[in-house]
Amino acid sequence: ANTMFGAAVLLGFINLLMAKEDTCDLYATPGQSLTLPFAYERLTNSHILEWVHNNKTIFYRKGKVSPGKPEDITSNGSLVLKKIELSSQGIYQVHVLHPSGTSAKTWTGRLCVLDKVSKPQLSYTCDFSSMAVNLNCHVTKPEGLVFSWTLDKETLKSETKQTLSISLNHLKGERSFTCDVANKVSKASSDKVRPTCPPLLSFKRQTVMAVLAGGGGLILFLLFVIVGLCCLLRRNKSQTSPRDKGELRMLSLQKQETHSVSPEHENNHPTEVVTPPLKPQPSPRTYYQNVPQLEVQTENSPPRVHEVPDRPQPSPVPKPRTRNFQQVNT
């Protein structure tokens, strides 16, 4: 039993030491100067003074100073850190000894170096489904930061998250919001934002849902009507018999034949229009050549009655005039 009790005490001491290492006693930002909170008012030059950072001696004075500089220590033995860097964080220890070597005073503290927080950017969205306004506090590296919200200069103590949701019923009139972010070394606030949502969101949620349900039902009904009409037209088209299709085709062909006759068809049937042949008219020269012959016939023989041929005769071959004169002389 004593062994178990001893083990429990040892485990508790180890956990306490680990918690001490994880927590910070001091905070600083890069570039800042800080004086560690230690003071020994009875400090004299005969005392031995030593400062240790992460198990490494950074200042030692026993008559003379080495390592370190005399200006790094105040008159009561506190250490001054100038232009702190990230490497400056860690555990600091100080030991003050009497000239006899006995301990006069000690101190231990942990320093954490953190960056300053940047100015947050506040944005919002109007959520139609939940009938609320969702606000978001944007900031780089939000890990380890503390968020707070202000509504009309009144801090909302219960809201400590990066986002905030407010019902539209609480937004009647102009309401202004700001968000603050902070860490152990700095704090920053956003600009004021006045959320404005569309008028549709001012209706009650039940009313909006009813309107949406009615519109959806109407659209569904119209779709059913369109599909039914399409099926009915396709069915009527498929029920048309081949015989009806053939009769319609014959009627269209007959209509085309009666209203359109091609020129080739007219040339292939010339008997429909009969025109009497025209009699060829003798040329003036032929008429002139036939005059002497008529005179010869009147002198030597009784006149002849010329019969008009039923069909056109080919025109006579012209004869030379000298021959006609010889016949007259004979």
Rank of each mutant, 00 (worst) to 15 (best):
T178A: 10
C179H: 06
V181G: 03
K184C: 15
K184Y: 09
K184T: 02
K187Q: 14
K187A: 10
K187Y: 03
A188W: 04
S189N: 10
S190I: 09
D191V: 11
P195A: 08
P195D: 02
P198I: 01
L200P: 00
L200S: 05
L201E: 10
S202W: 05
R205C: 02
R205G: 13
T207E: 10
V208F: 02
V208N: 00
M209A: 10
G215R: 07
G216H: 02
L218R: 10
L220G: 11
F221W: 15
F224N: 10
F224M: 14
V227Y: 11
V227Q: 11
V227G: 06
L229C: 14
L233Y: 12
R235M: 04
K237R: 07
S238F: 00
S238W: 01
Q239D: 03
R243H: 14
R243S: 05
D244S: 04
D244K: 08
K245L: 09
E247S: 06
R249S: 12
M250S: 11
L251S: 12
Q256D: 07
Q256P: 00
E257Y: 06
T258M: 13
T258C: 14
P263C: 03
E264I: 04
H265I: 07
H265W: 11
E266R: 03
E266V: 04
E266C: 00
N267K: 13
H269I: 03
T271W: 06
P276S: 13
P277I: 14
P277E: 09
K279F: 07
P280C: 12
P282H: 13
P282V: 13
S283V: 14
R285H: 00
R285I: 13
T286M: 12
T286S: 02
Y287L: 13
Y287Q: 08
Y287F: 15
Y287V: 15
N290Q: 15
N290M: 15
V291M: 10
P292A: 08
L294F: 07
E295I: 06
E295V: 13
V296H: 14
V296M: 13
V296R: 08
Q297C: 07
Q297E: 09
T298S: 10
N300D: 02
S301K: 01
P303I: 08
V305W: 00
V305L: 05
V305P: 00
H306M: 06
H306W: 11
E307M: 01
V308W: 04
V308R: 04
P309D: 00
P309K: 00
D310K: 12
P312W: 02
P312F: 07
P312K: 02
P314G: 06
S315T: 07
S315F: 05
S315M: 09
P316G: 08
P318I: 08
R321Y: 06
